[in-house]
Amino acid sequence: MRVKQVLNNSVVLGIDDSGIEVVLLGPGIGFRAAVGDRIDPSTVQRTFVPEGIGSVERLAAMVEEISIDAVTAAEEVVRLGRERLGRHVTYRVLIPLADHLGVALQRARQGAAIEYPLRSELSYLYPAELEFARQAVELLRQRTGVDLPAGEAVPIAMHFVNAQFGSDDMRDYLRITEALQQILGIIEEEYGLRFDHQSIDVARFVTHLRFLFVRNRRDPVALPEEDATRDPDTLLDTIRSARPRQYASAVRIARLLEGLFGWTVDSDEILYLCLHVARLTDTRRPAPQSPGKQE
């Protein structure tokens, strides 16, 4: 491994014998180092590759401002996140999370706190990620001795939601969250309902929508295998005739997704959306009228 570029005394860009570029961290690793010098492995504390995060230079620029302590804490949180949430959590989340944790830990030491939006939405749209993030806050307290505010679970959860959708851009999280809210709002508006956002039916619907987002953001994922004897168009026609209102809602949701994200929502997906809308609306009562409103 040789030095390609020195960022500072603790961060260098390295290149191995196969030509692969990596970012290397270690106290003094860049001190008096020059381009082309061999790197002593004993000076390397952390090695990063830009997995899905952009160029090595971008990764190095982010790492340059992050303390080793924050990186170490983030590594443990990501490792635990992979165990608790699944293998879709890759180490691409490590540097953005470490960057956030470095700032959050410093802010907590100074007694400052930030109120994050979307906390209530997280509780029903991403319950698993939020619950894990709460555990991560406690883990960070144990490892660093710093009491992070409970609200720090919100941005930590956001990082792991983004990991599911294969993104490290918080704008993607916000767009997807807003879309989920709009979809539930469409159904509540059209049927005059107010959902219990903690209910199993809402959780199933949101899970299906999240699967749809992942499927359209990543390589296509096959839907559950269908009965070879089933004609999907015939079944859709049957559902459309039996549940015209729910079918119309499913089409409206599909058009919303196409408009927001440029996706093509096929007839099979409209069928699944229709069935979910029917499940949500079959056993719900209309929303109560506002006080003072008379029939």
Rank of each mutant, 00 (worst) to 15 (best):
I156A: 04
L184Q: 04
P27A: 13
P117W: 12
E190T: 06
G262T: 03
T72K: 11
P244L: 07
A163D: 11
L235W: 03
S67D: 06
A228S: 05
E188N: 05
G28D: 03
R109S: 11
E83S: 10
I66T: 02
S199C: 15
L174C: 00
L122N: 05
Q5D: 07
A157P: 00
I183T: 08
R215M: 12
R245Q: 15
R284E: 15
A113D: 10
L24T: 04
Q289C: 04
A61F: 08
V77H: 07
A128V: 09
P50F: 13
V93L: 10
R32V: 02
I29H: 01
T281H: 08
E226F: 08
V3I: 13
H197G: 10
G86N: 05
G52S: 10
R87Y: 04
F211A: 14
R210F: 12
G14M: 08
G86P: 01
A73C: 04
E76M: 13
H159W: 12
T144K: 09
L7G: 00
I53S: 09
V265T: 01
L212A: 09
V3P: 01
V265M: 13
G52V: 06
C274M: 13
E65R: 12
G36A: 13
T43E: 14
L271P: 00
A34T: 05
V214H: 08
E51G: 02
D40L: 09
D17K: 04
D168E: 12
R285G: 05
D37S: 15
L97S: 02
G292D: 11
G36D: 08
D196Q: 10
V103I: 10
E131K: 11
V221G: 00
A179W: 09
R58G: 00
F160G: 01
Y272D: 13
Q110V: 04
Q246I: 04
K4M: 15
Q294F: 12
D168F: 15
I95T: 09
M170L: 11
T238G: 14
L105W: 03
R279Y: 09
L105V: 03
L139E: 07
P291C: 02
V265F: 09
D268R: 07
E189G: 08
D169P: 10
P244E: 02
G54I: 14
F31S: 03
G14P: 04
R284C: 13
S120M: 05
D147F: 15
R119P: 00
W263Y: 14
Q106T: 09
D233G: 08
L85F: 11
L94S: 01
T43C: 04
